[in-house]
Design a protein around this nucleic acid. Structure first.
Lengths: 149, 149
DNA sequence: GCTTGACCTAGAGCCCGCTCTAGGATGCAG
DNA sequence: CTGCATCCTAGAGCGGGCTCTAGGTCAAGC
């Protein structure tokens, strides 16, 4: 019943998280890990399941644009133990808002891009249908001059 | 009827686009501008409405994570004139997919973050209701050890 | 016994996207 | 005339986030 706690080498962790071994050591130096990594014989790092879970959280925070300094702050709070939940909450809420805003902005950008894609699809299609219509020197619908790109 | 074409100084453009004057000059050096900026007396840059529109497109592409090299490529194509619409389309489509993927990833991250926010809201609320219940050394629901952060 | 490979530390190096400095011209206000 | 703001160029510098190098330890396999 008590499954043996899994323990991984840095190479294995790199493989599973997608982070490089360099990045993993770098994160550790930077205080990104909430608990000190255990060391095996020869001073080799031994990662626990908990470490993996934490790293997964970190990669998601990173993927959503949280800077390392903020992640370190969060790690510090977790390391410090119970009693600072309000601060953790505040930190997470700030990031939550940040990500929400980011999604909004990306969605707006996507709209513009999609609009341009449609425009070019039409142009290319028209060109294929009648190459003479759209090639000559600024026929009539001089979209090149009226709107950029 | 022919409204006088508006022309802006680099400072004014900086103000309206939110880019710094440094960034504007930098972009120009980097070939990000699709048309060469006109110069007024004393060699000063004079931006047209078209330039502004182009810059707006650029800032949206940047905001959605397109690297400067890709924007330069796009600018090169536009500068080259008609005949390369397929390539522009391909470039934009790639970015479109990229942005879509990014939104997906952010949304997933947001879910995790929101989940954690809720968790901490509950913890903090419980703590406020009964400080003695959640403070002492790992009471029972030892969430600290079972799940990171 | 020797090679190979995964690991260790400390620190240098790199890419991106700006940002700032130095040193100077121009133009307008008091 | 003298400030003062705004602009110019060329190029150095910077912050973030890794990435890589040098030099070394250790264990396994041939």
């Amino acid at each position: 019943m008590p499954e043996v706690a899994l323990s991984l080498s840095i190479g294995q962790v790199a493989e599973r998280t997608g982070l490089s071994v360099h990045a993993l050591r770098f994160y550790e130096r930077e205080g990104i890990l909430a608990t000190p990594v255990r060391r095996g014989p020869g001073g080799r790092r031994v990662y626990s399941e908990w470490d993996m879970d934490w790293l997964d959280v970190c990669t998601r925070l990173r993927a959503s644009g949280m800077p390392l300094t903020a992640i370190r702050r969060y790690a510090d709070l977790v390391r410090a133990g119970a009693g600072n939940e309000e601060e953790r909450l505040a930190l997470l809420r700030r990031h939550q808002e940040h990500v929400t805003a980011q999604i909004g902005e990306l969605t707006a950008c996507l709209e513009l891009i999609s609009c341009k894609v449609r425009l070019y699809e039409d142009r290319v299609a028209a060109d294929a249908a009648d190459p003479l219509w759209s090639q000559p020197a600024l026929p009539k619908n001089d979209s090149q001059e009226l709107a950029p790109g």
